[in-house]
């Protein structure tokens, strides 16, 4: 198991913090903006073909998550949310040859001496137009293909227990559990790339209902139901 997939249900934790801010440090906004720009300029988007950016890579949530899920789990919990983004995204730009570690380190040292030193300006306005257009249009996983859902509302289903892959869309606590199909979402949904455990090609998504006690036995609370949206590839008929 990878601990990152099994966060749901961990015991022995402190009370939850009700921190309502989105960013707790100003720098966090910058890495968020960079990630959004990368998704908006990803080479799998048709709209990007004529945008004058030098970014030529495939970059999605799936890529960011693959990095976070690939961390040593004991490291995963050492870093705050956007610290993981900063590490993963900087690493991607270095590994892909866009920047060298030496120049990033040197530039970091410059800014450490003066954090207020200005950023370069200029650039092609068409880049920013595409970034905002991406935010308005999105990158819908819903596909215009005919699929026949294997399950219908009311069916009892068992969650499969596939071998772990680099990026997984199945919460760990659900593996081998039984639930009831509550809704069959309209249409078929792909994922950015094949994850290696069945997700990727267009397929139905179900909302599956689990009784909390079925999952956690007596380590939960009364009168509680858990609803999870699950790709068809992760479900099978009960044995």
């Amino acid at each position: 198991m990878k601990l990152q997939h099994y966060i749901g249900g961990l015991e022995g934790l402190e009370p939850s913090s009700f921190e309502k801010r989105v960013f707790v440090q100003p720098w966090e906004q910058r890495i968020f903006g960079i990630h959004v720009a990368m998704m908006a300029l990803s080479n799998h988007l048709e709209a990007v073909k004529n945008v004058p950016t030098t970014f030529k890579s495939f970059w999605t949530w799936g890529h960011l998550r693959t990095g976070a899920e690939g961390l040593n789990p004991f490291d995963y919990f050492k870093y705050r949310y956007y610290e993981k983004w900063l590490g993963g995204i900087s690493g991607f730009f270095i590994d892909s040859g866009y920047v060298s570690k030496e120049e990033l380190d040197a530039k970091t040292t410059e800014y450490l001496e003066n954090l207020e030193a200005p950023l370069p300006d200029g650039g092609e306005p068409a880049i920013d137009e595409q970034v905002i257009e991406y935010l308005r249009v999105g990158d819908s996983p819903k596909c215009e293909v005919e699929v026949q859902p294997k399950f219908k509302v009311g069916d009892v289903v068992t969650v499969k227990n596939p071998p772990p892959v680099a990026h997984c869309k199945l919460p760990g606590y659900l593996r081998t559990k039984q639930g009831v199909v509550d809704e069959v979402y309209d249409g078929a949904y792909n994922y950015y790339f094949p994850t290696g455990d069945g997700v990727g090609e267009p397929m139905p998504i179900y909302n599956v209902k689990f009784n909390s006690h079925e999952i956690w036995d007596n380590l939960t609370e009364p009168n509680t139901e858990i609803y999870v949206q699950i790709f068809e590839a992760y479900l099978e008929d009960p044995a």
Binding site: L41, T108, G123, D128, V131
Partner: peptide, 22 residues
């Protein structure tokens, strides 16, 4: 803060994003 500013700065210089994107 310095690391992300360095990264943004290099991405602008290299024409990946602009000085206004973020």
């Amino acid at each position: 803060a310095a690391r992300v500013r360095a990264l943004e700065s290099l991405l602008i210089e290299k024409g990946i994003i602009t000085g206004e994107t973020v």
